[in-house]
Each structure stands twice: as structure tokens, then as C-alpha cells.
């Protein structure tokens, strides 16, 4: 592995100043499960690793029923699903955090790192989109916010400008009668990259049948994770039924722009989009009903 500098700033200001000064020769180190491997395999060149895990804003989990969740960008996956409140209130995030890599990866890897890598197949991104997560970004010109679905701009490329740092996710508190789910297809049980991934969330009306609001996001079928607005409109206002779910699945298949690669053909992926959309919506629906009944 090439030699590099290391810094572990304790504040956002210090981190932004380091990143601004070193430009693209610096890279943020969170869990390191991808970055350290990339540098060792010469797939990424850098002079400085900025370890952000000592910055309070990046490593906190703060939940308030009214404000929702502030989830630090470098919080490890296992802290998410072991958190008593987050694991209950944000089921889609838990699904994703519990299937990224194995336990050793989950003890290090973060959703911030998963997002910043901007892999089209990243497992946590459709789940974050389903939960309406907003990226909180710090930079040399102050802070800004960006919805997760706008953060990835191309495979491996994200919307961060020079000197900017992903600080946390701001995730609204789910309304009553809300359920979410993330599922993916892989040919083995774990430790693999999604052939297709689907994150879905539903909010039901008081009758627990009619869909008030829906969100469906897909992974691994386009250059970036996709929020499928047509699927949401196919569901909103309709009863949850095989017909409305079929409409959403067809909308997702139409929105998908899959490629053929070693993990599957475009045709196979498009088929999977339909299957996974239906399954994720059904699970989200069941969870929304459970959430309503638990109140």
C-alpha cells in the first residue's frame, strides 16, 4: 500500500479545512472496509486519510419523536440495528444495515461510506431513499442539505464539492401507520453484491388498507440508485391490492435501465425488479399494519 498521511480531526471545522487544503488528494476514512482495500489495490490514489470517527456529529445517533433521526455518517451498521429505538422506527434501514457484508463489515462499515462510494448497487441507498433521508453536508462555504436520491451523480461519483464532507442523515420521524422494507436478490445467502435491490415504504390511511403515500427506490438497475416517482403515483390513493402493486411493479420495470454484466442480464434484472418491488411493498404493507396495531 502506498504511504499516506493520517489525521483524525475532532471537529467539523478541522475536517473541512483539511479536506479543502488537500483537495482530491485527501479522502475521508470512515469504516475503511472499502477505502483501505481500494488504496491497497491501487484503485484509489491519495495522500491523506481523514479519519472522521472522532467528530461527534459523524458518530452520533440522536432520535427525537418530533424531529426524527440524526444519524451520523460514520455510524457503523451494527450500531444501527442494535439501537433499541432506531431498530423499531426505521425498519428499512435495519434491513439494509443487517445485510451489508458479514458481521465484521457491519461492525465497521457506515451508511455514509456506503453512500459516498456511490455504487449503483449499494444496499443502503434505496433504504435511505425509502425513508426520505436527507444528506447534511458541511463545506468551506457552510452547510447544505441534499436528498439522498440526488447525492449520487454517476457510478462511483457523488455530489460533494471540493472540501465538502457528508456529516449525517436527517431522517424524518415516520408518520403513524408507516412501514418500510429493503430487499435484494443475490445468488448466495450473504457477502455479495445486489443483482437488484428494492427499498419501499408505505403510509396507510386510517382504514389500514388505502395507501396515503408510497416511495419505491431501486438499486443496481441504473448508473445511480433510482427513486421511481411513477411507482409512488401508481399507489397513492389506491387500496393496497395485487392490482395496485402490479401497477407499481410495472412502473418500476419501465423506469429501470439495467445493463447486462456478470451478475445478470438486463432482461433478468428487469424481471427481478418486478418481483422485488412486489415483495418489498408487501413487507412494507405488513409492517405498516403492525405499526398501527402496536400503537
Amino acid at each position: 500500500m502506498r504511504a499516506f498521511d493520517y489525521a483524525a480531526p475532532k471537529s467539523l471545522n478541522e475536517a473541512v479545512s483539511l479536506l479543502s487544503r488537500r483537495g482530491d488528494r485527501a479522502r475521508v476514512l470512515s469504516g475503511g472496509t472499502d477505502l483501505i482495500v481500494q488504496v491497497r489495490e491501487k484503485r484509489r490514489d491519495l495522500d491523506l486519510m481523514v479519519d472522521v470517527k472522532n467528530i461527534p456529529e459523524l458518530s452520533e445517533i440522536r432520535y427525537e419523536p418530533a424531529a426524527g433521526l440524526a444519524l451520523g455518517a460514520s455510524v457503523a451498521c451494527s450500531r444501527i440495528y442494535e439501537h433499541p429505538v432506531v431498530s423499531r422506527v426505521y425498519p428499512g434501514l435495519v434491513d439494509a444495515a443487517f445485510l451489508i457484508g458479514g458481521i465484521q463489515i457491519q461492525n465497521r462499515a457506515s451508511l455514509g461510506g456506503n453512500l459516498c462510494n456511490a455504487s449503483p448497487a449499494a444496499d443502503s441507498i434505496p433504504a435511505l431513499i425509502a425513508h426520505r433521508a436527507i444528506c447534511v453536508i458541511a463545506g468551506p462555504n457552510g452547510g447544505r442539505e441534499l436528498p439522498v436520491e440526488q447525492f449520487c451523480v454517476a457510478p462511483g461519483r457523488n455530489a460533494l464539492q471540493a472540501g465538502e464532507l457528508l456529516v449525517s442523515f436527517r431522517i424524518p420521524a415516520p408518520p403513524p401507520r408507516f412501514g418500510a422494507n429493503y430487499i435484494r436478490f443475490i445468488p448466495r445467502n450473504e457477502m455479495d453484491i445486489a443483482v437488484v435491490g428494492c427499498g419501499a415504504s408505505l403510509t396507510l390511511r386510517e382504514d389500514l388498507k388505502t395507501i396515503a403515500e408510497a416511495r419505491v427506490a431501486l438499486g443496481a438497475v441504473a448508473p445511480t440508485p433510482l427513486l421511481v416517482a411513477e411507482a409512488a403515483s401508481a399507489l397513492s390513493g389506491s387500496a393496497f391490492s395485487s392490482e395496485s402493486v402490479d401497477r407499481a411493479a410495472i412502473a418500476c420495470q419501465a423506469a429501470a435501465r439495467p445493463i447486462t454484466d456478470m451478475r445478470g442480464t438486463a432482461e433478468y434484472r428487469r424481471h427481478l425488479v418486478g418481483v422485488l418491488t412486489r415483495r418489498a411493498l408487501l413487507k412494507a404493507f405488513e409492517r405498516a399494519q403492525e405499526a398501527a396495531n402496536a400503537r
Binding site: 493520517y6 475503511g32 472496509t33 486519510m49 479519519d51 465497521r108
Partner: peptide, 10 residues
């Protein structure tokens, strides 16, 4: 953790 993808300094 995987010791191969953690820096000693971390």
C-alpha cells in the same frame, strides 16, 4: 473486525 481493513493507528 477484519484486521486487514483497519489501520493500526485507528
Amino acid at each position: 473486525v477484519y484486521a486487514c481493513s483497519m489501520l493500526a493507528i485507528e
